[in-house]
Design a protein around this nucleic acid. Structure first.
Lengths: 152, 152
DNA sequence: CTTGGGTAGTTATGAAATATAACTAATGAG
DNA sequence: CTCATTAGTTATATTTCATAACTACCCAAG
């Protein structure tokens, strides 16, 4: 049997995987995720705490279980996000008027201020990620992504 | 001060996040990842072990450190993937001819067979994810994803 | 040849994200 | 009132991924 040669200098090919949109999506998303984390870090936010804060700003009085549904995460994990946002003084847990088990999540003035700044930074990050793409291409990407999401 | 109302029945809006391509990408990728995991599970493969196997099939004699670079993961994690592939009898660690520290990764006949079947299933999964999109749109998505990846 | 800095693979470990199970308190239908 | 269900929480397990340190080895300078 002939010995297997190793490839110390030759370029590694991933052509078979490149065919797959999922592979390209994972690699692109890794880049986006890393850049977004760097973008949010100065604000003391992470991807999911920023998303949660955004949801609370957009939907005042939102309840944790609704937040879990909107973010597609478990209720148990939402507790951690809200804890962090509450400790930072950006979100409050007000008692619900209609259900004594539930809370109405509200964002504070400080929360609104950090959100506005973080949102501007995130939008700049998003534009950076799309740099060099034409509007029609961006639209195609958004449409495709939302269609894919709808399959799940 | 007026009491905060909660929103027990109203639909939760994520419009601010929907503007961001990164948010749409994360949600779409979650769907893709879940479907891919279901697709690979019957073969005893996961996303990264399938990717590793594909790389080894495409690049016989590949070395673990090269595999780490190609997959953008740490060398230490590659050990785990190769361990799994080796235990399943799909990949062998042959001694390198040129460097006694290194291994030349080879896929076995059984490895090639499971790869061919898994690859067909993954390609079907990929087509399923793109169902309803036109060729031009798919091309735009691929181009955009590769461009975004190039920023990292 | 020898010596020292760097590299390949491995191991052990830690950090972070995410999921599961069980608990308390409250709701709401019958 | 009773009881199955739900909201929020807690504790815990799992998984993923990165870091540090180790051995064996390579290689180039002296």
């Amino acid at each position: 049997m002939e010995k297997p040669k190793d490839k110390p200098e030759v370029e590694v090919s991933d052509a078979a995987l490149r065919d797959l949109v999922g592979y390209n999506m994972k690699r692109a998303f890794n880049v986006v995720q890393a850049d977004l984390a760097r973008t949010l870090e100065p604000f003391g936010l992470r991807m999911l705490t920023f998303s949660a804060l955004s949801m609370i700003v957009e939907n005042p009085g939102l309840r944790p279980s609704q937040l879990a549904g909107a973010l597609s995460v478990e209720r148990a994990n939402v507790v951690v996000y809200v804890d962090q946002l509450e400790e930072a003084g950006w979100v409050t847990r007000a008692p619900s008027e209609t259900d004594r088990r539930a809370y109405a999540l509200q964002c504070t003035l400080a929360g609104r201020q950090v959100y506005d700044k973080a949102r501007a930074a995130v939008r700049a990050h998003d534009r950076r990620m799309l740099d060099g793409l034409r509007e029609v291409e961006i639209a195609a990407v958004k449409k495709a992504l939302m269609r894919i999401e709808g399959l799940g």
